[in-house]
Nucleic acid binder design. Structure first.
Length: 512
DNA sequence: TTCCGACAGTGGGGTCGCAAT
DNA sequence: ATTGCGACCCCACTATCGGAA
């Protein structure tokens, strides 16, 4: 199959807002693909590379290369070149990568270049990723969409399922069962604004502590242990403590879901930054493990002794977990009878926060493990803080925000009467707010830049955030975590905005 | 007819590791 | 030694489509 066909379909998919139309277009393309094209076409149309990320970003792709006049590139040819690209490393590799990219781009037409750039930067933006590719695949092969979706979640990979499905037909889907050693997409939680709301929605539930670390799925088969992240990357080699912990458990075969976190000498959880830094260390793992040891803390069991537990109610899965995993290696929890018992849930939440954790997750006792879904049966609740901050600048948006001032530079007042930038946010804005702030900030502009505008520090905006973290980027030495706009405060003057001093006083645990 | 679940899009900060400077 | 870049952790929120109620 020619690459131009992919680029064309991708353009058509991007041009329509209708999901059924997108699905139809994808299905048609999948039907036309030759069997050997499939392992490439499927991920390309889902906006991904079969090789994963390959060390090519906007810097290399930004170079201008004259496009070819006629489309000659094939899908498989491109894939072969990218496989070569992914294998390049060592001194001079950047130049070599750039050479290969230029060769590829030089052979591509204008449309193909656009498509390839999107693909390589992971910004396909055609309004169809994995989920719609699954729908299209189901349509193309006349398989049941729900069964295909489930197979993808259990395989942890759309490609694998697509290949089997196109080669063998819908019968192949039965092969995709939970298997020890093959990671499954993890179940995710939705947000709730309060403990009361979560308990109200769920009724009888378990309220568990939410640890601020790295999500892990741990597989053990005899002496073999594998540890996977939320995106199913294998990080076993970086976490020897997790392997030892899994080997000490009284079971030979299991799959557990949990969080990896580091506790300090005082027994309190270390900051997310410290835990994440440790988990990210690959070179001298032994030293990293000595300085920042981590512990696995589990909250669910997906498989025990070869029994698939996914479809069991959470209460039963947890009973299996409790049989296998001793107390300190399990998340703390409280059982709540229902809304009439909200006070005890709130009490548990307060105690969890006092121990230095992030918040709680309330979980329905009847719910199965919905791999890969952000189901309504897991509700997380974290404390939210707010500040009144001053807008110093705004950046031009991209995509659907093109032409609108989007990303705000936020600052608090300093003791000397100036402003200290604390971070940026583009979150929480409605289309109406985007239009309004583009207009208003335009009036306040004192300097036009290619990236946006600097403005007179007059506009006050109310910001919600999850907490403070240390920063080397910003002058106060701290930055806001997950800042988002609540509303503009035109009733406030910049001198009414919060100060850096107040902010630091409100978060004594963070040292600037 | 209205409601709501699922998706995609729009980017945020930090850290690590590698290659280039 | 320092800097720039890419990958990958954590993540909130809005708009929209289309099936469910």
């Amino acid at each position: 199959m020619l690459l131009t066909r992919l680029a064309e379909v991708s353009g058509q998919v991007a041009a329509t807002a209708s999901r059924t139309r997108k699905t139809d277009l994808l299905a048609e393309l999948f039907r036309d693909a030759e069997p050997d094209d499939v392992p490439v076409v499927i991920p390309y149309l889902a906006g991904r590379l079969p090789q994963g990320r390959i060390g090519v970003g906007w810097k290399v792709l930004g170079r201008e290369v004259p496009p070819a006049a006629d489309p000659t590139l094939t899908v498989r040819g491109v894939d072969a070149l990218l496989t070569e690209l992914a294998g390049v490393s060592g001194a001079g590799s950047q130049a070599e990568r750039a050479r290969i990219v230029d060769e590829l781009m030089g052979a591509a037409t204008d449309d193909e270049q656009r498509f390839l750039r999107g693909l390589l930067t992971g910004e396909v933006r055609q309004g169809a990723l994995d989920a719609l590719a699954v729908e299209g695949l189901a349509r193309a092969t006349e398989a049941d969409p729900a069964t295909v979706r489930r197979a993808v979640m259990l395989a942890g990979s759309l490609q694998t399922v697509a290949q089997a499905l196109l080669a063998e037909g819908p019968g192949a889907l039965d092969e995709f069962r939970l298997t020890v050693g093959r990671p499954v997409l993890p179940m995710l939680a939705r947000s709730a604004s309060s403990v009361a709301e979560a308990v109200e929605k769920l009724g009888a539930c378990a309220v568990e502590e939410k640890l601020d670390g790295i999500r892990v799925q741990v597989h053990r088969e005899g002496d073999e242990v594998r540890v996977y992240t939320r995106t199913l990357d294998d990080i076993t080699d970086r976490l020897p403590e997790v392997t030892s912990a899994a080997l000490e458990l009284p079971g030979e075969r299991f799959v557990l879901d949990g969080e990896v976190i580091s506790f300090g000498p005082d027994g309190r959880p270390r900051s997310f930054q410290e835990t994440a830094g440790r988990v990210g260390s690959r070179v001298d793992v032994a030293r990293a493990a000595e300085e920042v040891p981590v512990s696995p803390v589990f909250f669910d069991a997906l498989s025990v002794d070869g029994r698939d537990l996914l479809d069991l109610p959470f209460a039963e899965r947890h009973a299996e977990l409790a049989r296998l995993v001793p107390e300190p290696m399990r998340v703390r929890r409280a059982l709540v009878a229902g809304p009439e018992d909200t006070a005890s849930a709130e009490e548990f939440s307060a105690a969890t926060l006092a121990r230095g954790h992030e918040g709680i997750v309330a979980k329905g006792l009847d719910a199965p493990y919905s791999a890969g879904r952000r189901g309504a049966s897991w509700l997380k609740v974290k404390p939210v803080h707010t500040l009144d901050l001053v807008v110093l600048a705004a950046e031009w948006g991209h995509g659907r925000r093109t032409g609108k001032l989007s990303n705000l530079h936020l600052a608090a007042r300093t003791a000397d009467g100036g402003y200290a930038m604390l971070g940026k946010t583009f979150k929480g804005m409605t289309d109406v707010m985007l239009a309004w702030q583009t207009e208003r900030l335009g009036e306040l502009a004192v300097e036009e830049k290619s990236w946006g505008v600097r403005v007179r520090p007059e506009l006050v905006v109310e910001i919600a955030y999850d907490g403070l973290q240390r920063s080397t980027r910003y002058p106060a030495g701290v930055t806001l975590r997950f800042a988002r706009v609540i509303r503009y405060r035109e009733d406030k003057r910049p001198e009414d905005a919060d100060t850096v001093e107040d902010l630091l006083a409100a978060h004594p645990e963070v040292k600037a």
